[in-house]
Amino acid sequence: MSRDVEILDDFERYLRAERGRSPHTVRAYLGDLRALVDYAREWDTDLRGVDVAVLRGWLARQHAQGASRATLARRTSVVRVFTAYLHRKGVLEEDPGALLASSKSVRSLPTVVSEERVGAALSSTAETPMELRRRAVVELLYASGARVSELCALNIDDLDQERRTARLQGKGGRERMVPVGIPALEAVRAWTWRGRPHWARPNSGPALFLGSRGQRLGPTSARRDVHAWMDREDGTVAPHDLRHSAATHLLDGGADLRSVQEYLGHNSLASTQIYTHVSVERLTRAYREAHPRA
């Protein structure tokens, strides 16, 4: 096993155990860093010899190949975390990542599905196990504002039918309770009574949502469920669009920003404030279209 592979394995354990990163985030980090290792070999060096020139060359090549500003910003952030880790471990005498200029990404406004479109999609009937699951997935994502990974991690007991709440495991293992409306609870109840038993196996465990082979539903399959159910209303809607939409509709309905921050599980209020821009944009458009003196 090469020294670079050992270093990446150690870093992977650090991300999982000490930083509490999700499996998806860990895979993304390691994918970026393996690309860095390949580039460093072109400089006849390995991770122990990486300096700021190597890092800047690696990022410059990606920019020349058409990488977006958001992608470059993410990879710059990954490199900084990684080189800081190597410096603390004594692998690097200095931290070259600290010398990288900040690559700011342009933050686009999230996609918001109208209340009417969500309502139309969720008024469709469901009969088969697949239809029951798809409807329940869409209802619960929209009702709870959950990330798709949080939805897939749900167990049956994480939904409290009496209190109308869901217990979600967020980033870094942080747990939060969110309210869930009656329509979503009814859709989940229909799935658990009429759909889930068709696919449940002795080793299925407590997972709320199952695949057709009895395994816990994965994020990729959940995304397919959303696409398939929402495409009945034309256009492609992703799970995160439902999360964006739920947050925006809450603000449009008068919810305060702090409550929406807790609902979404954001660490920083700054992450939530983007939804105020969405609401203002929609309000401005409606004003221009409807106000007699606009």
Score class of each variant (00 low, 15 high):
M1P: 12
V5Q: 15
E6D: 15
R13H: 13
L15N: 09
E18H: 13
V26Q: 11
V26F: 09
R27F: 03
Y29G: 05
L30C: 07
D32A: 04
R34V: 07
D38T: 10
R41T: 05
T45K: 04
G57H: 04
W58M: 06
A60C: 05
L72P: 05
R74G: 06
R75D: 07
T76N: 10
T76H: 05
S77F: 04
V78T: 15
V78D: 02
V79T: 12
A84Q: 11
A84F: 03
A84W: 03
H87Y: 10
E93C: 04
D95V: 12
A98C: 06
L99I: 05
V106I: 11
V106M: 09
R107C: 02
R107S: 11
V112T: 01
V113G: 00
S114E: 00
E115R: 05
R117Q: 08
R117P: 00
M130V: 14
L132P: 02
R133C: 02
V148I: 09
D157A: 15
D158C: 10
L159N: 02
E162W: 10
A166G: 06
G170E: 08
K171L: 09
E175C: 10
V178H: 04
G181R: 02
A184G: 03
V188G: 00
T192Q: 08
W193R: 15
P197R: 13
P197G: 13
P197M: 12
H198S: 13
W199K: 11
W199A: 10
R201W: 13
P206D: 15
L208G: 04
R213Y: 14
Q215N: 15
R216T: 11
L217Y: 11
G218E: 06
R224H: 13
D225P: 01
H227R: 14
W229F: 06
E233H: 09
D234G: 13
V237S: 01
A238D: 05
L242E: 01
H244I: 07
H244C: 04
S245M: 02
H249V: 00
L250Q: 06
D256A: 08
L257H: 07
Q261C: 06
G265D: 05
S268A: 14
T272M: 06
H277K: 15
S279F: 07
R285G: 14
P292D: 13
R293K: 15
A294F: 15
